[in-house]
């Protein structure tokens, strides 16, 4: 139930402002300078690879190795994505096939 439109609006506002502040933080700190510090430039070059690896772990965070239905679909579909991508290098194919495989596994095999 929608309780108070005004309070809901305030919650939306606070969330929006905080999210923008978080995203803008590095720019507010380093963006104003003429020269971006060397350490930040270095991080700009190497950090993306780390971040993407952490994000993959983030996506798989709810895998539970105690129950096969809680890890097999992600693992199988994940291997398919990586394998297809190394082989064909086609982003849409890798993502499409991996997602369809995952959906079939969770909907039909490991229900």
């Amino acid at each position: 139930m929608m309780l108070h439109a005004g309070h809901s609006l305030a919650i939306v506002g606070v969330t929006a402002v905080c999210t923008i502040l978080i995203r803008a933080f590095p720019f507010l700190v380093f963006g104003g300078r003429k020269e971006v510090p060397g350490a930040v430039r270095y991080l700009g070059a190497v950090l993306p690879a780390s971040i993407m690896a952490v994000l993959v772990v983030y996506c798989m965070r709810n895998m539970d190795f105690m129950a096969i239905s809680h890890f097999a679909p992600s693992l199988a579909a994940g291997i398919l994505v990586v394998g297809l991508h190394v082989w064909k290098k086609n982003i849409l194919l890798s993502i499409g096939a991996g997602t369809v495989c995952y959906m079939m596994l969770v909907q039909m095999v490991f229900v």
């Binding site: 690879a49 993407m52 994940g78 890798s94 993502i95 991996g98 997602t99 995952y102 596994l105």
Partner: peptide
Amino acid sequence: TGIDFSMTALFLVIV
């Protein structure tokens, strides 16, 4: 159900 795996797949491809 499971369509959210497309995000995981996207991240894997970038990696």
